[in-house]
Write a protein that binds this DNA or RNA. Structure first.
Lengths: 227, 227
DNA sequence: GGGATCGTTGACGGTGTCTTGACGACGTCG
DNA sequence: CGACGTCGTCAAGACACCGTCAACGATCCC
């Protein structure tokens, strides 16, 4: 789900955006001043930021600069000012788009889609798309697994499981979490599936399937992908 | 040096842009209709396109779609129409920005800088307009397929499918993704179409249609274009 | 108006995958 | 020491999916 951070100090604008965005399946985070916008962006990891320039505490370009210091998340600026100089300074500070109030909701949504589409195709996502271990490599973007140079074929379920573990590499992933993500919310208790498919993955990927080095079991808790 | 392709049929606009852009160190290419814009984009490999929607020959969204078929170069649309629906359709067709005439030169230049800055940070991943395999060649810009020197005729649907796969060559493309892109969002579950059209493509392009080497099936997941 | 092309839909067989059950090994706790 | 729960392994049937062929309308072009 796409996460949108809406930064505006006018409640009615925030409300209108929240309603429209939520109705279209976006997840909406909000902040009402510059300082909380920066922390919310760091905390909520939004996919796109809608930023009003007329904030009470910070200048708009400072907020943009504060974001651009560590993230390349798309920023769409809202502003009541139609001055060309305002637009130029905001865009040059690092904003991706500039919409003047009053704005049409259709247009804003279209510009938001465009911004999200752009950033989706560029692999700037913080995580690396290819995970490598001593015995095999997982390419998350291409959905391919290689072992000793040769490609290993995985079934959809096997891949879903491996992908979930690889995206959380190093961390423990609970069985319930795995089951709900790969099989669906109704399968939260079918822990037998995990045993069957972990065995299959180990047989395909581990040098010694009975003594796994990368696909580890944490008894009673879940599984962990270790590099 | 940054190369800008300016597409507009009004000479005075082209002249004004050429002067301003050249003075700021851009290299300027021009086209005055949709058809020549497409060839100029394929030929001149611009870093950004400024596109007027009111062209004499083609509809603006068709030009955008024609470009988006093979390149992700940023497109900034110029238009005299302020209709919200025009903006939405242009942005959803793949445009990056939409500026209404009359526009301030400062603002356009700032939006242009923003568009170039964005695309500069994303690695222009091996996006070649012509994809070559051992048995056939796909020219994404010209929308043509050759096999053994001769041109192969593809229907629009066949082409849409092949284009989508070729643009994601090496990567697995989910069936839902293919269906939504080629047939439309309402066809996300009509996976039967994929089987029929993949069979047709293989019959036309693969040396052994029953043992495909380039248009591969990943059961339960999707299809993959392998070089 | 006639013919060809294209998109859509149905039926069919074959193959691979998912699900399910049974069984033994291991560790823990009463 | 024995009961219990968890885990790993194996096997077999049910099922979904894929590829293929063919027929039907709709549309476009001559």
């Amino acid at each position: 789900m796409t996460r949108v951070l809406v930064v505006d100090d006018e409640p009615q604008i925030v409300r209108a955006l929240r309603i429209n965005l939520t109705a279209r399946g976006y997840q909406v985070l909000t902040a009402h001043d510059g300082a909380s916008a920066l922390t919310a962006a760091a905390d909520g990891k939004p996919d796109v930021v809608v930023l009003d320039l007329g904030l009470p505490d910070l200048d708009g370009t400072d907020v943009i600069a504060g974001l651009r210091g560590w993230t390349s998340v798309p920023i769409i600026v809202l502003s009541a000012r139609t001055d060309s100089s305002d637009k130029v300074s905001a865009l040059d500070a690092g904003a991706d788009d500039y919409v003047t109030k009053p704005f049409g909701m259709d247009e804003l949504l279209a510009r938001l889609r465009a911004a999200v589409r752009r950033s989706a195709t560029s692999p700037t996502a913080g995580e690396d798309a290819v995970v490598e271990t001593a015995s095999f490599t997982v390419d998350l973007a291409a959905k391919k697994v290689h072992r000793d140079g040769a490609e290993v074929h995985l079934t959809p379920t096997e891949w879903g499981l491996l992908e979930m573990l690889a995206r959380n590499r190093g961390r423990l992933v609970g069985q319930k979490q795995l089951l709900q993500e790969v099989w669906g919310p109704a399968y939260a208790k079918e822990s037998h599936y995990l045993r069957v498919y972990l065995a299959q993955l180990r047989r395909k990927l581990e040098p010694e399937p009975s003594h796994p080095r990368h696909l580890l079991t944490e008894p009673g808790m879940g599984y962990r992908f270790e590099l």
